[in-house]
Design a protein around this nucleic acid. Structure first.
Lengths: 251, 251
DNA sequence: CGCACTATTGAGTATAGTCAACCGGTGTGG
DNA sequence: CCACACCGGTTGACTATACTCAATAGTGCG
């Protein structure tokens, strides 16, 4: 998957595959990830506790439900989904994670993973041993506060999704989803108007509480109305304001 | 549940209205709230940062959207709802909070309140100045870890609600809601089988993404099927297993 | 006592789900 | 290399679930 891969490769990485040991201090996600606001020397200390990086191939799991919780994972490149699978085999998607986002925060409360994390494309994460991290949080107030903000942001994000699921019609959900993705890509330095969906219609549907057919129909409708252009998973937003308007209606 | 007190009054409080200054060390929620696992001397230190308690009358706000964030609030007695109000005036409920639960965690990320917290009955909270709390977390690892667990639990709880909203039919949502309430009351030492709803049908509907009519109809149906007995807001669960079964179907 | 709020119930309807057929691209094995 | 199978996606027809609108009744507070 490595050489031929085109659009896929997710991040403007510092191109030094040799020095995989160097972490935050050389990472382009410094301003988005854990190190936000830290002094160089504190970033060094953070670097030291990041035991390793880990590569996960598309379709395989970073961790599975029930695994003991020891570490958080910061997505470096690629994308993940977290899934909750019920006994009957059907899976529900609880979240999508892009570069700079932290996986595993829900597991702190249970000491075990509550969901499985599956890579949507070849991905790389930084492993953050939680015990060491807590130690460091006690020593670096800035880091501590930022970490609390990250957890808090997760709570906010979930509450936003709850509002979406509880109160919006299908078209508003999808529209809101696209707007959210657009913003996240923009934050990463990519185009807000044109990007590649990392997930299938079915996965989007699962996340938004819709069927894949409804998602597909809505993409077609948005496309017919000139709001977006979509070809397979390449999507271009043509009328951002109109998308927003759809959300506002039923906010 | 001492005896004469109607199901209403929420907590087996130490009955000393004089010493309102004493906090965690004399609070019956010690085992459920922030102090979990702390030594008496550490509880004392926690006590010292809890600047005050605050009473909120039924129907009035503990805080409002946009208020600057300075403190978290631990519910001591009573119950709250948090609401998101859109410009058109309609409000959506994002959560219900009972004794021992912490309000305001989402505001850490934004430095402002994202929702309003309204008391569902006369209630009392302990005010936890966040800056002091962070200081204390740095000094007491046990407290730090427990605080992270509390935030993590909030994330879990939200994810659970997301799964509910995204994947369950109306009857499963309501059933799941009742089971959840039952467990929370049981944790507080009340009957799991018989309790008083603190909220209206409309509020339940708003929380679960349903209309008040649907909630009402479902209560009637559950009642007709012998799963519950309900009179106004007093509810008795007659067939817990059947309620569980409704949830399992569409899990 | 009366008004406002909360709840119940009914009738008709709209939105999204289900079931199903079909298409195009991709990858695999003969 | 081609045929075939499979996966992801699109579209259509029908249906069920929950929403909307509306009428009515019971509670509780001033």
């Amino acid at each position: 998957m490595t050489s031929t891969r085109p659009v896929h490769a997710t991040i403007p990485i510092v191109p030094s595959p040799a020095t995989i040991k160097a972490a935050c201090s050389s990472c382009s996600l410094q301003e988005l990830c854990l190190p936000v606001g830290l002094s160089p020397s504190d970033i060094d200390r953070l670097d030291r506790i990041i035991s390793s990086r880990h590569t996960t191939r598309r379709g395989s799991s970073l961790y599975r439900i029930g695994d003991p919780f020891r570490s958080l994972y910061a997505v470096r490149t690629g994308a993940f989904k977290t899934i909750d699978l019920s006994e009957d085999g059907s899976e529900k998607i609880t979240g999508f994670y892009l570069s700079g986002e932290i996986l595993g925060l829900d597991a702190i409360s249970t000491d075990r993973q509550n969901f499985s994390a599956v890579a949507l494309e070849d991905s790389e994460v930084c492993v953050l041993p939680f015990e060491h991290l807590e130690q460091l949080l006690r020593e670096i107030p800035t880091l501590q506060h930022h970490f609390h903000k990250i957890m808090s942001r997760d709570i906010m994000r979930d509450q936003g999704l709850m509002l979406l699921l509880a109160g919006m019609k299908a078209d508003a959900r999808l529209s809101s989803f696209l707007i959210g993705l657009s913003q996240r890509f923009a934050n990463l330095g990519y185009s807000a108007m044109r990007f590649r969906l990392r997930m299938t219609r079915e996965e989007i549907g699962s996340y938004l509480g819709l069927t894949l057919e409804t998602v597909s129909r809505l993409f077609s409708r948005f496309s017919a109305e000139g709001l977006i252009r979509i070809d397979r998973r390449e999507i271009e937003i043509l009328d951002f304001k109109a998308l927003r308007a759809i959300v506002e209606v039923r906010e």
